[in-house]
Write a protein that binds this DNA or RNA. Structure first.
Lengths: 329, 329
DNA sequence: TTGTAGGCGTTATCAC
DNA sequence: GTGATAACGCCTACAA
């Protein structure tokens, strides 16, 4: 069912039907009504592909996420999708993987799709490979980055102050008289390195500055969180606190501790980051740094939408994280 | 950069360029090579929108999910997206919400997009409202339903034997000498009603047939799982087992029990369904019915891909669930 | 082996 | 108020 079909049935031309479909003025009321009835009767829906071709706008937004399965990203994806679809956009969600090539590859795949805007989720996209690919493939559509920023003219970024956030977390443990604290991160994304800096700062100012070396690596998974905690327990039986970069490994760390007969939080404090649902499921419930995922999603989509509407929102925005105290501190 | 631009630079016509881009035969090797070089040099990528218009194929697949945030759905979405994008398709993931109108609305929104295929996730789409909307909006594109089926000529369904699965779960508790078992479900999706039937069957055959009335309702959330468990404890202090329809409420139920001083699994057994990550985070770890989400995603995308390729896979496939025993039974 | 012409469904720009 | 007509970028008969 095309506008031509409708036009024929209404005894008018296709342009008239088009005008009605798009609510353009300058149509005789009777004509409009008659056409609207036919539109409804035949269940006409405009072909967005054809529209996209002539309007050079697809009403589609690309969303880049390394792995949608991680709870934190998923929440962002959900809210952003809600928000954008309310504004009439359809979301192309692409799981990019974590390597440079796979991220660049995802960008190339999206490039064929004439998307109107792009949103990246996670600081991992704040890297040179992505910057270059974006500059080449999307030089002039609005790009918003949730938890990231790249110095390109069409990129807007929303960041969270995780440096101070993690610093406060460590200080919280120190105030609980837990000074020997290990830091565990999955990989070297800008966000995680930032957290590490916060950890180092607080550690150096604290009573156990030797812990500045207690930096461990563990992927975002239950298995790895368990493994690394056992390792830390072995290498530093006197450990008093674990500062994880994300919740998934952290909850597993809590389990590793209790399995080893270590009392949480009496002997060891544990803090995660992201404040996902996992925190509440964990027993004892996990204290976590809330990096304002909800606000970040809302700000990112708002900024993207504003750019899409031709406004020019600030290039960078910073949100402040906060600690949600539960049972592991 | 269009094929016309390339054609001009190569001194040939646009159709020749088109043929090269699409690897069509009948091009002089030198011409082909020259064009290919230009293609690379200028970083040409075909405009999928224009292609879609003429080919009547967008290489896009719509994915309908009520709420991507629920771990179980999310995993499916992830695997399906991986699988389909490997086959050259881009996924439009739409969170539909749970009401009939919002689901139908999502279908209408997708209808404008000329998608090549559709995949629904969750038995909630197995309802009359959706059936009608699909019949009207997508009468002739392949549709695959993960955990669902609708009797339409273009619909293929992958189902799980949750009836027997839940029955076996209840029997497992009965074998542990736990007979007074309550059943908790979030809403009346076909899948959940099926589980309920399994529960009833096992209960009637067991030593405490009066429990056939112990059917409770609790939404898929930590809060509700906690609330309903307290309620059950109040109304039936002698309860010996909890059979939840999904993990999220179940893990919270476990916490409600331990908070109330009830020993799990000694006094009360708990079993969830879906076998999500939550099971491992829960302490004690949650026994759950694995409804083969991974296999389901793979089967669904495989079936969809086959239909897309013009084959005609079986209309319905049934997978068998299995119990993953952990620490709550 | 290559080019020309027509069309996919829609919108925008002119005419009338 | 309404109707031709020409794009948008690509593909595919058919012709050369």
């Amino acid at each position: 069912m095309t506008i031509y079909d409708i036009a024929k049935k209404a005894g008018v031309s296709a342009s008239t039907v088009s005008r009605v479909v798009n609510n353009k003025p300058g149509i005789k009321p009777e004509t409009r009504q008659k056409i609207e009835e036919l539109l409804k009767e035949y269940g006409y829906t405009p072909n967005e592909t054809a529209r996209g071709l002539v309007n050079r706008s697809s009403k589609m937004i690309g969303i880049l996420i390394t792995d949608i399965r991680y709870a934190h990203y998923m929440d962002i994806a959900f809210f952003v999708e809600q928000e954008l679809s309310r504004a009439g956009y359809t979301c192309l969600i692409v799981n990019t993987g974590t390597t440079d090539e796979s991220k660049v590859d995802a960008i190339h795949r999206l490039a064929q799709r004439q998307i109107d805007g792009l949103l990246t989720v996670g600081s991992t996209f704040q890297c040179d490979a992505v910057k270059e690919a974006l500059a080449k493939s999307f030089p002039d559509i609005p790009i918003a980055m949730a938890n990231g920023y790249l110095p390109l003219p069409n990129v807007k970024g929303v960041l969270v102050d995780e440096y101070n956030g993690v610093m406060e977390c460590v200080k919280l443990m120190q105030e609980n008289n837990h000074h020997k604290i290990a830091f565990i991160r999955p990989n070297s994304t800008p966000a995680n390195l930032n957290k590490q800096k916060g950890f180092l700062q607080a550690t150096r100012e604290g009573k156990a500055p030797e812990c500045a070396d207690w930096i461990y690596q563990a992927a975002t998974s239950l298995e790895e969180g368990y493994r690394v905690t056992q390792q830390i327990l072995r290498e530093h039986p006197d450990v008093e606190g674990l500062m994880f970069c994300e919740d998934e490994a952290a909850v597993s760390g809590v389990r590793a501790l209790t399995d080893a007969g270590v009392k949480v939080p009496q002997q060891v404090n544990v803090i995660g980051v992201d404040n996902t649902r996992y925190c509440e499921i964990c027993n004892p419930k996990l204290t976590a740094l809330d990096n304002m995922m909800l606000e970040m999603s809302m700000e990112s989509s708002r900024i993207l939408l504003e750019s899409l509407n031709g406004n020019n929102p600030p290039a960078r925005i910073m949100l402040f994280s906060r600690i949600i105290q539960r049972e592991t501190t």
